[in-house]
Amino acid sequence: MTKITRRSFATTAAAAAASLKLGPAFAQENYPNRPIQMICPWGAGGGTDATCRIVSALLEKEFGQPVNVVNRTGGSGVVGHAAIAGATPDGYTLGIITVEIAMMHWAGLTELTPKNYTPLALMNEDPPGIQVSSTSPYKTVKELADAIKASPPGKFKASGTGQGGIWHLALVGWMQAMGLPPNQVAWVPSNGAAPAMQDLAAGGLDLTTCSVPEARAMIDAGKSRCLAVMSPTRTKLYPDVPTLKEAMNIPYTTGAWRGFAAPKGLPAPIANKLTATLKKIYDSKEYAEFMGARGFGTVWNDANGYASFMDTADKQMGDAMKAAGIAKT
């Protein structure tokens, strides 16, 4: 026991000495030589947390240094996202940033935008599906859309997340793409996708627009049907379900995404090393198996690709939020 303690103490002391005496060039060369903190702005047990933890576990294996996931929850994501942006850009504090970073500043909740980060890699995106109860009379998305068009605004009720959340915007975007007013379908705010799916099965709602993995268990239980997905291609989970473009010739697509980022100003050598390592993880069997088992979609975008992806997403979200009347700025 004493032996181990002494040895690890010596390592810590040596690491401390190394980072004190030697210049930044050496620090970048040897990156990483101490534990890395990985901030997750959402609670333990959720999808973002799971994605963050599997990637951290694989990073730890690649780097041979502990990668500790820290859940900085609170403020509906604001607190954690701010903690990532505000950390020292030395590569020892990284984080997973989610679609909310492109939404929160429009709602006036924070000043932070995607520009406040050094993007490293985009690794996951899940499209919303259009789900109805299995007892619903609508068999195809076209029938549902026609019924919505024919009914007075607000007759149909949809849910999937809170007011102004990503799935609410997906609904607004779909309505606009069909040339309908954003409130043609009334949004019933819910505390996440699971309660919304339950209420759909209990007969309290007409449709949900949450992500396909979130709706999966109810669909598999035969309590719900997925009519279409709002993505460019069909999902691996339900290859029989058409995309909106295939079913109605509406090219509208959106999704909730998760990517890894560091505070702004991360030295390029470290950023490149991280992006390269994340690419290796993305290609690994473990990552593919894990994400496949959870039903999460995988996409890859390197640092530059991720930056331009976020710019596009930022604009799309801003438009939808302005249409829904949620945007403050």
Partner: peptide
């Protein structure tokens, strides 16, 4: 429990 307590002047040997 892996709670990130700040080290400060006195880092513990088991970090």
């Amino acid at each position: 429990l892996r709670v990130p307590l700040p080290d400060g002047f006195l880092p513990m040997p088991w970090r």
